[in-house]
Amino acid sequence: MGKMMFIDLTRCTACRGCQVACKQWKSLPGEATRNTGTHQNPPDLSFNTLKLVRFSEPKVDGKLHWLFFPDACRHCLEPPCMGQANLDDEGAVIQDEATGAVIFTDKIANADAEAVRTACPYDIPRPEKDGKMSSKCDFCIDRISNGMKPSCVHVCPTGCMNFGTEEEMRALAKTRLEEVKKHYPQATLGNDDVRVMYLFAVDPKNYSYNAVAEAAPTGPMTRREVFASLAGKPKA
């Protein structure tokens, strides 16, 4: 069954506890940033920013929304990054049997970083700036293997981030969807072939370009290209 995370976006306040707690647990460095007219900062995921709260403020049916999207690896049930990276080195990406966590090993340095990123339906992996490594969220494998919650879940004040067995999380997602639909008729769950499932109050496209992945592409486009073509431009 493995573990799963359920992210209820109707409860997110963008306090960014998760963004910072991730760096705290992993002792990752901060980045040199500037304000470019948005609160979203660092501007994107990076080798040192594995969890990022994305901000958008769309008008949906004439009503202003300020939407927040804590973005990180979805830990796919069948991770395309693993298929891609392991073509170059068999041990580059592994999947933990007990939890289902998808983990980059140090052999990821032997894989084609751009190809690995492109393979990801959610555009998550990021290469090292002047090196060969790539990185992404590892589901706090050290914590969850020891009965602790991932840092981002542990820190979350509002019940936006949840962690448990696949069964528990799928049940919670279903219950919450029903509750939320009363107030947000457009509410929907995101992709379900992953271990990080989101509940969106409005059309996922309003949250982030990579909020959901479309079905596997049949044509020459990669999945990333597909949603790049579908998604609106992110703002604020």
Binding site: R16, Q19, V20, G30, E31, A32, T33, N35
Partner: peptide
Amino acid sequence: EWLLEAEPEVFCEMNPALAKSIGINNG
């Protein structure tokens, strides 16, 4: 740095109509 990277500098919030009227773009 974990906090500064998220909010690195002072900003002024204003609405688009005001911004437009005084020739200011976001950022």
